[in-house]
């Protein structure tokens, strides 16, 4: 559905995108995972024909993003990174306006947005600027969907949104996918990667890996352990001072570690006991997306 071949983009001296390649399939939910400043927004703008790439070519549904920009603009739905609706117009007026812009009506494609819009219905007379974060995001999605786009581009739809609304949002995306809409979504939250069919990990304008979430975690090269004790603050310090470890990163109340050489749990256990830790647990752990991302980041550096 989306084909990207060797896209590069620079702003002055800053290289925002560096030789990006990837393809998505029809009906696929594809995620671009990476922190702010990784180049996600530039890539979205190029794919939605709003920005010209310096190098490379890209197409959406077979239409070239540079030459056929008019065609692209009529078949895509786009939700930019920041809240981009009219704050002084009501929920209903916003939706009506965007329906008209795409020469359709709310009624025509109501089935698509029904589940989402029903949650907004009680507030439909309220100005969009006065909605809560989660509600704004639902309205923005409704507006991007109202013309039944073939491809949906969602740039960081869950940034700054609380965990509950985020979860609901991903449930909505899963439903849209069932209706056959191809979706490209970006997020800085690594835990959301698992909701996508395939993901690209992006950092400093480069794609570090593309695979299914499972494939990516499977490719984690080292043996990973999760360590915990009663005093996590000291545990971090002590593990960082322990020379045998390659990495030690906090994950909630645990610390994920990898060894430079062959893992030696017993020695580590003794070291931690000597350092005064109690209730020490060192157990093998399956790598998550965030583990993989940090590993790839280190390789890149």
């Amino acid at each position: 559905m989306i084909e990207v071949e060797g896209i590069s983009k620079t702003y002055g001296k800053v290289l925002a995108l560096d030789d990006i390649h990837f393809n998505t399939k029809k009906g696929e939910l594809f995620g671009l995972i990476g922190p702010d400043g990784a180049g996600k927004t530039s890539l979205f703008r190029i794919l939605t024909s709003l920005l010209l790439p310096d190098k490379g070519r890209a197409s959406v549904a077979g239409f070239d993003v540079v030459k056929d920009y008019k065609k692209i603009r009529s078949i895509i739905g786009y939700m930019p990174g920041r809240f981009s609706l009219y704050p002084d117009l009501s929920v209903e007026e916003n939706l009506q306006f965007f329906a008209k812009v795409f020469k359709t009506s709310i009624e025509e494609n109501y089935h698509l947005i029904k589940d989402i819009y029903q949650m907004l219905e009680p507030f439909k007379k309220r100005p969009a600027g006065k909605l809560s974060g989660g509600m704004k995001q639902k309205l923005a999605l409704s507006c991007a969907l109202i013309h039944k786009p073939e491809v949906l581009f969602l740039d960081e739809p869950t940034t700054g949104v609380d965990a509950v609304s985020r979860k609901e949002f991903w449930e909505m995306l899963a439903k849209l996918k069932e209706q056959g809409i191809s979706i490209l979504v970006s997020t800085p939250y690594m835990d959301e990667a698992a909701m996508c069919e395939r993901i690209a990990l992006i950092q400093n304008g480069r794609i570090m890996d593309i695979n299914t979430p499972f494939g990516i975690t499977q490719a984690f090269p080292d043996e990973l352990f999760s360590v915990s004790s009663d005093n996590i603050i000291h545990l971090v310090k002590d593990l960082r001072e322990y020379q045998e470890l390659k990495t030690a990163y906090t994950f909630g109340s645990n610390i994920h570690i990898t060894f430079k050489n062959l893992p030696d749990i017993t020695t580590l256990q003794t070291y931690l006991e000597k350092s005064g830790h109690s209730n020490i647990k060192i157990i093998p752990e399956n790598a998550g997306i965030e583990d993989c991302f940090m590993n790839l980041m280190q390789n890149q550096a």
Binding site: P80, S84, V101, K103
Partner: peptide, 13 residues
């Protein structure tokens, strides 16, 4: 400023 121009540009208008 509100970012709505971005959506309008990405529309068939």
């Amino acid at each position: 400023e509100t970012g709505t121009m971005e959506i309008l540009l990405a529309s068939p208008l």
